[in-house]
């Protein structure tokens, strides 16, 4: 360049500006997107997968896909929901893979919720109460519930991912909701 142009800070830039620049190869713009939405994407993965290690992997894979596919994103203004869809698909892939690698008898652990009461004295807010209640749910109920309420998948998609009919998903969800309400209401 003929003149040393000032390097403009990008921290306050709009999503569309950042997505457009990153699509054109601006690594600095991509970094701002990672900083802006990485924490939400990670929180999402942790809730869906209930595993920090797997979540870190999923986050990494998601940003690899994002960098590669950004040039195909026409409207950079929707980059947030676009990133969330990527991480969501990656989480679903993990859940499917668990089903393939784990013996089916091993995926139904967990005592009924009433046998493992949450340690209510340690609960400080409704938010914490839900966290505790979720941990006491049987794995398949918890999975259905987060896929429905956090990921907002349809019964059919959830069923396909965890390898059961949609009707079974309904049943698991109903039981999850009952268990969660019981625990949450006790706390109220």
């Amino acid at each position: 360049m003929t003149t040393a142009a000032p390097v403009r800070p990008l921290e306050n830039a709009h999503d569309r500006t950042l997505a457009g620049r990153a699509a054109d190869g601006d690594v600095r713009a991509f970094e701002v997107l990672v900083r802006r939405y990485g924490p939400l994407m990670r929180a999402y993965a942790v809730r869906i997968l209930q595993s920090n290690d797997e979540s870190d992997d999923v986050l990494q894979e998601s940003f690899i896909v994002a960098w590669r596919q950004l040039p195909d994103l026409d409207d950079g203004g929707v980059v947030k929901s676009w990133l969330m869809r990527i991480v969501s698909r990656k989480c679903l892939d993990r859940i499917r893979a668990r089903r393939e690698h784990v013996d089916i008898d091993d995926v139904q652990p967990a005592a009924p919720a009433s046998q493992s009461p949450p340690r209510l004295a340690e609960v400080h807010s409704t938010y914490d109460a839900l966290g505790v209640a979720l941990r006491t749910l049987p794995e398949n109920q918890r999975e259905c519930w987060v896929l429905r309420e956090i990921a907002e998948y349809s019964y059919e998609d959830i069923g396909e991912a965890i390898g059961v009919p949609a009707s079974t998903v309904r049943g698991l969800l109903a039981r999850a909701r009952k268990n969660l309400i019981h625990q949450m209401e006790v706390w109220r």
């Binding site: 924490p39 929180a43 999402y44 938010y127 839900l130 966290g131 956090i150 309400i181």
Partner: peptide, 13 residues
């Protein structure tokens, strides 16, 4: 329950 669920990720972050 749904209300708390909606805020779950925000609080996590």
């Amino acid at each position: 329950l749904r209300e708390v669920a909606r805020t779950l990720l925000d609080v996590d972050v």
